[in-house]
């Protein structure tokens, strides 16, 4: 990161058409290794969840009723909005708007902090009701899935903070734009995992 001062080549920053050129890999090829790895990992958990559900449908339905659909829905809307802000922010970076981009990243960060807050409230409500990770296999999955996802949200939030700082400076080299775009893609992945977790845990009947 400290090589910004070393490398003072003129800014080869992608212009307003960045990402519009056909054949542009979002971020860079390597980040898709991480994204598909993570998505496959979570998909195996989703499959396992539905399999264990099929073994004891009554228990899973009864336990699902304990969850607050309102909180799950609110969190989905928060993450979708944060994804919009990140997409707008990456576009702003591509257009070289160094004042707008950090604000958009911070807006996304605010949404993700809201998500974490609501997740905390939901955990608190469940735990106060005497429900814990070892209550039954539904709640085992519930806490493990949402907990692992929450870990990704927290890592992603740190990333959003870093992106907010970096997007406020002119980019020194093209690889820095690739890193910002890759960071954005990681956040979208966090969003799209929740897009699947929400119906699985809260809506499947």
């Amino acid at each position: 990161m400290d090589d910004l001062s070393v490398d003072q080549r003129p800014r080869p920053v992608p212009g307003p058409t960045a990402g519009k050129a056909p054949g542009h890999i979002p971020g860079e090829a390597g980040v898709w290794l991480l994204l598909f790895g993570e998505m496959s990992f979570f998909s195996s958990l989703f499959t396992a969840f539905l399999y264990y559900r099929s073994l004891d449908i009554a228990l899973f339905s009864a336990s699902q009723a304990e969850l607050s659909k309102a909180i799950g829905l609110t969190n989905t809307l928060l993450l979708l909005s944060s994804s919009l802000f990140v997409a707008l922010a990456v576009r702003a970076v591509a257009q070289g708007r160094t004042t707008t981009a950090p604000r958009l990243f911070l807006a996304a960060l605010a949404c993700s902090l809201g998500f974490i807050l609501f997740k905390g409230i939901e955990y608190y409500q469940l735990i106060s009701a005497g429900i814990a990770v070892n209550s039954n296999s539904f709640f085992g999955f519930y806490f493990a899935l949402t907990g692992l996802h929450l870990g990704h949200v927290i890592i992603g939030s740190v990333l959003l903070g870093v992106l907010a700082v970096f997007s406020g400076r002119p980019l020194a080299r093209p690889s820095h734009f690739a890193l910002i775009e890759s960071g954005g893609c990681f956040w979208h992945m966090v969003d799209l995992l929740w897009i699947i977790i929400f119906p699985l845990l809260y809506l499947v009947e």
Partner: peptide
């Protein structure tokens, strides 16, 4: 290489699965 960076990032994130073992006595966790 940069692709190794992303593989490393994936390995780093997956490492958090380890301590989950403290919470479960059966099943995939």
């Amino acid at each position: 290489p940069r692709w190794l960076g992303y593989l490393t990032a994936w390995q780093a994130v997956q490492s958090f699965g380890g301590p989950v073992a403290l919470l479960f006595k059966s099943g995939i966790f």
